[in-house]
Write a protein that binds this DNA or RNA. Structure first.
Lengths: 338, 338
DNA sequence: GCCCACAATGAAAGCCCTTTTATATTCACT
DNA sequence: AGTGAATATAAAAGGGCTTTCATTGTGGGC
C-alpha cells in the first residue's frame, strides 16, 4: 500500500507538500503538483479514507435508515425507487451510502450509536414506525437528517402531498359522476395514511357529500388482504359506494378482488382508485387507476437537502412537499345506471 | 467526543489498559475491566470505527456492487430480496453494507479503486454485464468477493440452478401433456438466460422432442415488450407451440398479452410458464405459473460464504447452486383438443 | 543595499486506537 | 529471604492523513 510518505520519498518533497498537492492547496507550484500527481499515478497511490476521516472528521458517508414494520425490509418498492435516485445524487457529490442498523458488532445498540461509531455525515430516514425510541434518539441528536414520508419540525422532511393526492383521487371519481365514494384507509398510525384519510374527508366535505357512516373502512398495513376485507365491509353497507378510493395500491388490488368475488365487475359496477402506482398497477387486470408520486424527485430532492444541511447551508428545517398526479388506467368509470 | 484517553484520565489507568478492557484481553483484571466499562458508560464513550480501522486494517464493511444494464438500478426486485437477507446475516456478524460505485468524490475511478479507498473487507456482486472492465479489475484483485447469478472460478459464486429450473419447467409442461413446447429466451449474454436456454434444450432432447426450428424466440433484456414480440413470432410458426417456457416472468407476462391480443386464451389455448416468481406473478390474471428461486437462501448463503472468505477460512472458491421449485398457478393447463 | 511582501516548502503535532514490548507487582515455593 | 513464574499495568511506536505555523527564497520598492 502506497502512502503519501512513499510519494514524498520518491519525489523528494515532504509529505506535507504531497498532501497539499492532492488537496489543491494554492501554495504548491503547478509544476510541483504535476510531478507529485504523476508519481502518485505511477506508484498506484490511493488515499486512505479512514485516515482522512480520522483527521478531518468527515466521512463522506451517508447513513440509510430503513425499517419496515412488516418485515418486508428493503423490498418495499417505494423505498427502492426513492433510494436509487437518492444514491445517484449522493454519489455525484462524493458520498457513499451505508446501511445503518440497530446492531453493531452483533450487539444491539441503537441507530444513533451506530451513526456515531461509523461517523456518518448525515442520515436519510425511511420508517414505518416513527415512534421507535431509537429513532427519536437520532432525531434529537445533532446529526443532519432528512426524513421521507413524515412531518416533523425537528428534521428536514420530504414527502409528497398526500392530502392533495387524496383530493385529486376523490375529485377524479366525482368528475366521472360518482357521489357515493368510499375510502379504504391504510390503517393505524402511518403518516401518509392519515394524511390521505384527512384529504379524503376534506374532499368529500368540499364536494358537499359529507362522509356517510361506514364509508371509511380500515385496512391494516396497506396490505392486499386487509383491502379485501375492507371492501367486503363497504359492500355490505345499505347504501354502498359506487367508487372507492384506496389509500394504497395493494389495498386497491384487494378491493378489486373482493368486488370480483362478490360478482361485481370493475369498473362497470364499481370503480376503484389506488395510491402509489407500484409496478404491479399497470399489469393487473383491470389496470389500476391510481395516484402517482414522483419517487425520483423525492429521492433527488431529499439528497440535495440533506447534503446542503451537511454542508451547513440553511439553518432552517426544510419541509418539502411534492405534487402528485392521477394515472388514469382502467379501474374507474362513470357509475352504472343502477 | 470521549476517547479512551478521557477514560484513562478519569479512571487513572493507562489508555492501553482501557483499550484492552474493551477488547477482552485476558491480562486486565476483571475488577479493572468493570470499572473501566462503567466509566465509559457514564461518559458516553463510543469507539471510533475509523481510528480502529486505521490500525487494524479491518473496516467491518462489505461493499455492495450492483449495476443493472437497464438503468432500473436498485429497483430490480430480485436484487432487493436477496440483499435484504444478505444484510441480515452481515449485520448479525458485525458488518455494515456500503454501496460501491464507479465514482468516488464525484470523479470516475472504478470499483476496485473505490473499494481500496474505502477499505471494504469484501464485496458482494450483482451485475447484468459481467464483462465490464471495471468489474474484471475487481475480480482479478485480492479482495474477497461473492458473485450472484454468475459462474467463474475466480470468485465465490452463488446462484440458483438455472438448468434444473428450465428442466423443471419443461417437464412440468410435458407432464400436462404438452409436446410442442417453445422457449422465449432472455436474450443476449446474461448468464442465467443462457443457462436456462441450455436447460430447455437439454430437457427437450431428453424427452425425445428435439427443438423444432424457430422454437426458441429471443427476447431482449427480459423485458415485457420483448416477450410480447417473441410470442408473436412463436405464434406465427406453422406448427406453433401449445406451451411456452419464458426465461423470466416479465417475458411471460408479455407473452400472455400477445396471446390474448391474438385472440387466444391462456391457459386453455396456450400455456405459459415464467421464471423468477416476481411479486407481480401472483396478482396478474391468469396468475402466472413460474419457477421460484429461494432468494432468501441466496442472500443468506452468499453472506456466509463471503464472511468465511474474509475470515480466511477455506481457500477454494465455492460455487454454490441452490435448488428451485415450480409454483403452480393458473397459466398452464393441458393442451386443448386442437 | 535593505526591508517587506509574497511564493513555495517543510516540521511537527494531532486525530483515536491497537499492539508489541517493557516494567512493576504479586504469589508460590524452596 | 530469594528465585521464578505468572499476573497486571504502562510506555511507546505506529497507522495515513491534514493543518498550523515556521522557514526559506525571490523580487519589488525605496
Amino acid at each position: 500500500m502506497t502512502t503519501i510518505y512513499d510519494i514524498a520519498k520518491k519525489t523528494g518533497y515532504s509529505p506535507t507538500t504531497v498532501s497539499k498537492a492532492f488537496n489543491n492547496y494554492s501554495d504548491v507550484r503547478e509544476k510541483t503538483r504535476q510531478e507529485i500527481l504523476r508519481t502518485a499515478q505511477e506508484m498506484g497511490y490511493l488515499p486512505n479514507a479512514h485516515a482522512r476521516t480520522l483527521t478531518t472528521k468527515k466521512s463522506w458517508t451517508i447513513g440509510v435508515l430503513f425499517v419496515e414494520g412488516t418485515g418486508a425490509g428493503i423490498r418495499h418498492p417505494f423505498f427502492s425507487a426513492v433510494i436509487e435516485s437518492f444514491k445517484q445524487v449522493a454519489v455525484a457529490k462524493g458520498y457513499a451510502l451505508m446501511f445503518i442498523s440497530k446492531d453493531v458488532g452483533g450487539k444491539q445498540s441503537g441507530y444513533l450509536e451506530n451513526c456515531r461509531i461509523r461517523g456518518v455525515d448525515g442520515v436519510v430516514v425511511f420508517l414505518s414506525d416513527y415512534n421507535d425510541p431509537y429513532f427519536l434518539e437520532l432525531l434529537e441528536s445533532d446529526i443532519p437528517t432528512v426524513i421521507l414520508d413524515y412531518d416533523t419540525p425537528q428534521s428536514h422532511t420530504v414527502c409528497s402531498d398526500n392530502r392533495a393526492g387524496a383530493l385529486l383521487a376523490v375529485n377524479y371519481l366525482a368528475s366521472l359522476g360518482h357521489r357515493r365514494i368510499g375510502h379504504i384507509s391504510g390503517g393505524g398510525n402511518s403518516f401518509p395514511g392519515s394524511e390521505r384519510e384527512l384529504g379524503y374527508i376534506a374532499a368529500m366535505e368540499e364536494l358537499g357529500l359529507g362522509v356517510p357512516d361506514g364509508y371509511i373502512a380500515e385496512g391494516a398495513f396497506f396490505s392486499r388482504e386487509s383491502g379485501y376485507d375492507a371492501m367486503l365491509k363497504l359492500l355490505e353497507l345499505p347504501e354502498c359506494p359506487t367508487a372507492v378510493f384506496a389509500s394504497g395500491d395493494l389495498l386497491a388490488l384487494g378491493a378489486v378482488m373482493a368486488a370480483k368475488d362478490k360478482g361485481l365487475s370493475v369498473p362497470s359496477d364499481i370503480s376503484v382508485i389506488g395510491y402509489d402506482d407500484i409496478e404491479l398497477a399497470a399489469y393487473v387486470s383491470p389496470a389500476l387507476t391510481t395516484i402517482r408520486q414522483d419517487t425520483e424527485m423525492l429521492g433527488t430532492r431529499a439528497a440535495e437537502i440533506l447534503i446542503a444541511s451537511i454542508d451547513g447551508k440553511g439553518q432552517d428545517k426544510e419541509a418539502l412537499m411534492l405534487p402528485v398526479e392521477v394515472v388514469v388506467r382502467e379501474s374507474c368509470a362513470p357509475p352504472g345506471r343502477a
